[in-house]
């Protein structure tokens, strides 16, 4: 029997013919990286290839690594295997990875969403025979509201807090979610302050995307100047001493998990905005259908449930264990996972 083009081993998703890994979780010689979140782009590979807008991002995170950038839809060949990157719409610089050999096409989705968020290049469906997909929110209970409505809620919330003379503290991952929030905050309401981790990442991305002005919070920042303004902070700042500077403040979290009341309460934020950089249930189904794939492999999230449902639709769907952090969610504040939000 002929070997599959992509296989799952202890290091990651492996293409034996090309001797290349996709988003490996252990150090390897050659890695093609879907995007800059920590569980997909790890330290220690000898050589990295990723989308060119992701290059400064992973260099910022991983230091001086041997990385080269590619454009979307640009084909590059390794040992007769054709590779190309395609927009995944997850965060800036995120790609799906297409792999073709002897007429057989596989696509690895990385993380993705279908809605155009105005920062990342929007998702494009890629036809393939086998589709390796995430399904972080692969449950019919997840149904996103258009981001326009969510941002209008966020800005209303900020304005109400400002009127009540309180500082708004909004939590979102420092890569991806923070910039998406930043893009749509209404600066007519007030000023935007940032936690250092978010400011550093945003500085890296600013040359590529137009963002409103932000002010980094430092030791010198006073309560008075923050009052009524909005602070963007990573989830790990919740409950830290750093946040005491904001008193009196109101907190909110922007994440797909906020769809659940239990998650909102566990997170102990005053407000939860349902805003995700992953697909909801319907988006996942739409994406799977658009690929035309007959084989689907689910890597992280509600994999068992989603693949079982795909089987009822007649697809050859199964799950594979990976170290992408699908079941982690916002409650994991100590060890911040940049991957899921």
């Amino acid at each position: 029997m002929h070997k599959p083009l992509l296989a799952f081993n202890e290091n990651g998703i492996y293409c034996e013919v090309a001797n290349v890994y996709l988003d490996p979780w252990k150090p390897v010689d050659f890695a093609i990286i879907s995007h800059g979140h920590a569980d997909h782009s790890r330290y220690g590979h000898k050589k990295y290839i990723t989308h060119h807008t992701n290059v400064p991002i992973i260099k910022h995170r991983l230091g001086d690594i041997n990385v080269s950038g590619r454009n979307y839809n640009e084909t590059f060949t390794i040992n007769n295997v054709k590779f190309s990157l395609h927009p995944a719409g997850h965060i800036i610089g995120s790609s799906q990875i297409r792999v073709e050999h002897r007429g057989e096409v596989w696509v690895f989705s990385g993380d993705y969403k279908l809605e155009d968020d105005g920062v990342a290049v929007p998702f494009e469906a890629v036809k393939c025979h086998s589709f390796i997909t995430e399904c972080t929110f692969g449950l019919p209970a997840f149904k996103w509201t258009p981001q326009k409505e969510v941002f209008s809620d966020i800005n209303n919330w900020w304005e109400t807090n400002r009127e009540a003379k309180q500082t708004s503290v909004l939590f979102g991952y420092s890569l991806g979610k923070a910039q998406r929030l930043l893009k749509y905050l209404d600066t007519d309401i007030g000023k935007i302050y940032t936690h250092g981790a978010i400011e550093n990442m945003t500085e890296v991305i600013r040359p590529m995307i137009d963002f409103p002005e932000t002010t980094r919070i430092t030791r010198e920042t006073t309560k008075q100047e923050l009052l009524g303004n909005i602070v963007l902070a990573p989830p790990s700042a919740h409950g830290s001493t750093w946040i005491r500077k904001m008193v009196p403040y109101v907190t909110a979290s922007a994440s797909g998990w906020m769809a659940f009341r239990g998650a909102r309460r566990r997170r102990a934020v005053d407000r939860g905005f349902v805003l995700s950089d992953h697909c909801d249930w319907q988006e996942l189904l739409t994406a799977v259908e658009a690929t035309g794939a007959e084989k689907v492999i689910c890597t992280h999230g509600y994999t068992e449930i989603f693949s079982k449902y795909l089987r009822t639709l007649g697809l050859d769907a199964r799950t594979e264990n990976t170290q992408y952090e699908g079941e982690l969610n916002e409650s994991d504040t100590k060890k911040e996972s940049e991957s899921v939000a």
Partner: peptide
């Protein structure tokens, strides 16, 4: 049913799906 197990509240599951 799977969704209900995960959401943890029947009324909430119904409202969501």
């Amino acid at each position: 049913e799977e969704s209900y197990h995960i959401v943890g509240d029947l009324a909430e599951t119904i409202a969501l799906v």
